[in-house]
């Protein structure tokens, strides 16, 4: 269970979160919606302990992570896999080395075993043909798939975190990524997806939280989201081109 209790966070003078509170159970599939700069990505970074809140508590499995050291946070981070908006692949490494990054560091696998494992994971996400390519040679969709493969290489998490996973992708690629996300969460693994595309969120998530002015102004299922009377949410729903079909 992830619990945000009255979390405030700002970058200098600019306040991003203003007392955000919510809780998410690990098997849930949740989408955070909201405009740019409303703190969606900030929430993911807070969950992983990459930034600390100015005030409030963040509990992961009952433990407050706000005061934990980097070493202690490592255990918390092992529960998650994150895919950042642009994939965050290491530019200087090719696809194979990106995926093998943690395997080389944390396991004693031989070169042959690493190669096998990398190919197996790349096949899972459907980009085995890209094994020798450099990140700049990948398309947006491949970037995210490889990033996902890299996160999966070492461990399977309790929850996947996706930061704008379909932004900048054409509809076919976006749909493929949504299917992949849904597939990976099939066996009870949760996911938190941050996006401003309601149509994509609907394909993957079952619960929706809408952020505005640093707080959660909506928390409900898809039906409630589409039927919401809140103007911003109605605007988002129609801008996403999703009409409940």
């Amino acid at each position: 269970m992830i619990v945000f209790d009255e979390v405030w966070f700002g970058y200098g003078e600019r306040q991003i979160l203003r007392g955000a509170s919510f809780s998410i159970a690990f098997p849930e599939r949740v989408a955070f919606l909201g405009g740019s700069g409303e703190g969606k990505t900030t929430i993911l970074r807070l969950i992983l302990g990459l930034i600390r809140p100015d005030s409030g508590k963040i509990l992961v499995d009952g433990e407050d992570i706000t005061g934990k050291s980097e070493t202690e946070l490592r255990e918390v981070r092992m529960k998650f896999n994150i895919v950042f908006q642009e994939g965050a692949l290491f530019d200087s490494l090719n696809v194979k080395e990106n995926v093998a990054f943690c395997l080389r560091e944390y396991t004693r696998m031989t070169e042959v075993e690493i190669d096998e494992r990398v190919r197996e994971i790349l096949a899972t996400v459907g980009v085995e043909q890209a094994i020798d390519l450099m990140p700049e040679e990948l398309s947006g969709g491949m970037h995210r798939r490889v990033s996902l493969a890299r996160s999966l290489a070492l461990s399977t998490p309790k929850m996947f975190l996706y930061d704008e996973p379909t932004t900048g992708l054409d509809p076919i690629n976006a749909d493929n990524i949504c299917r992949l996300m849904a597939d990976l969460s099939k066996d009870g693994k949760g996911l938190i997806m941050v996006t401003h595309k309601v149509s994509d969120a609907m394909k993957v998530a079952g619960r929706f939280l809408f952020l505005k002015n640093g707080a959660v102004i909506f928390d409900g299922d898809g039906k409630a989201l589409l039927g919401s009377e809140i103007p911003e949410i109605r605007f988002f729903a129609t801008e996403g081109g999703f009409h409940g079909g």
Partner: peptide, 11 residues
């Protein structure tokens, strides 16, 4: 590009 974040996430 969040690569430093990823390094931290990977421990």
């Amino acid at each position: 590009g969040h690569q430093v974040d990823m390094i931290r996430v990977f421990g």
